[in-house]
Amino acid sequence: MSPPELRDLLADALALWGVPGRVAVAEGGVALRAPDGTPLRVVAAAAADRPIRWWVEKPGQRRPCTSVVGLLRTLRNAVGAGDGEARRLRVAMP
């Protein structure tokens, strides 16, 4: 996912969570600001970091995420939007 694609996805996610804010491509990733003013940055992890795919950074902290699903969960928490309604689904092959 390119930084502009990531920006668009995260902007949509913020809108879905009802969190005001601006998301912009910056420093090889995407920058945004939590409602409490905390600057956040989301960057793609290097291939050598696998299974980590994304980093969510804020001053003094760097959280790893192994998928875009995990990234959304981490970011939702970081912007104070509370928890979603997590469910498990499994496809049983015929």
């Binding site: 879905l16 699903v69 309604e85 997590a86 469910r87 498990r88 689904l89 499994r90 496809v91």
Partner: peptide, 18 residues
Amino acid sequence: ALALTLWMQALAEHAGAR
């Protein structure tokens, strides 16, 4: 199949009652 299930889970998780 895995992409579909993860997508539906994520959508349900974040959209909730919406």
